[in-house]
Design a protein around this nucleic acid. Structure first.
Lengths: 123, 123
DNA sequence: GTATCTGTACTAACACACATAGTACAGTTT
DNA sequence: AAACTGTACTATGTGTGTTAGTACAGATAC
């Protein structure tokens, strides 16, 4: 269900956070759908329950999921996730464009790249 | 000369690496211009000489600078730096565009953003 | 030649964040 | 009652980044 890179510089709990946020944003999980329990997911991934809990807490703090003691954790409506993901993407886009411009890349080259990516997506 | 974020998750030696690479790529430092010595720069930045040396070693490994024992460290021609920076920027661009597309951002919106950035740069 | 700079190469120790291990408690479900 | 859920807490291990200190050889200036 999730793919982790245990050797990444990114902490496991952040990888989990990003994974679940992305799934929520893309609609891969439905609203109010239950997530695996802290203990179950920890065992599935081969990590400590504390690590999963940390990710869940961050997700709840940001409105991506909500947790009910005794019942479980569930994905909220995807709006918060979508907005967050879009904001991150646009910020990264701006950074990349500015960096490319600094290196002398022409606007046309950037635009061509964007076109190529969009064309490659729908075929 | 350099701005460091001592609390960043990015190690200081990597911040230094990126700073110097960017300066070399943008022509802010000339070819064969001497860099501050390991010890001097360390004192200026308030860090350990070992940390600076680590950055210099990585820079030399990647052809951004060259070091001569007994003499000092000097910036190479900026070509390697420019190529590397451009490659990084284009890769980030692709990532950002894909992420934005996943969130339902239209191609036109991306293109508008790119245009806005380029227009904002020359005025 | 001496002093002082340079890069380079080590070892030892400290600090911090991440992750683990274990325990405990209250609420929910069966 | 049993088995699950989230939550909270302490203690411990571990790896990485950083510091501290020392040492040596080459280059430069006096």
């Amino acid at each position: 269900m999730f793919t982790l890179d245990y050797k990444s510089r990114l902490p496991i709990y952040e990888q989990l956070y990003k994974s679940i946020t992305k799934m929520a944003a893309l609609g891969a999980v439905d609203k109010d759908e239950p997530l695996p329990s802290v203990r179950v997911l920890a065992q599935e991934l081969g990590v400590n329950p504390n690590t999963v809990q940390k990710a869940y807490q961050m997700l709840e703090r940001d409105g991506i999921i909500y947790s009910v003691p005794g019942k479980g954790s569930f994905v909220s409506g995807g709006e918060a996730a979508i907005l967050q993901q879009k904001e991150i993407a646009m910020k990264k886009l701006e950074e990349a464009v500015l960096a490319a411009a600094d290196c002398g890349v022409k606007a046309s080259e950037i635009l061509d790249t964007v076109h190529a990516i969009y064309n490659g997506r729908e075929e």
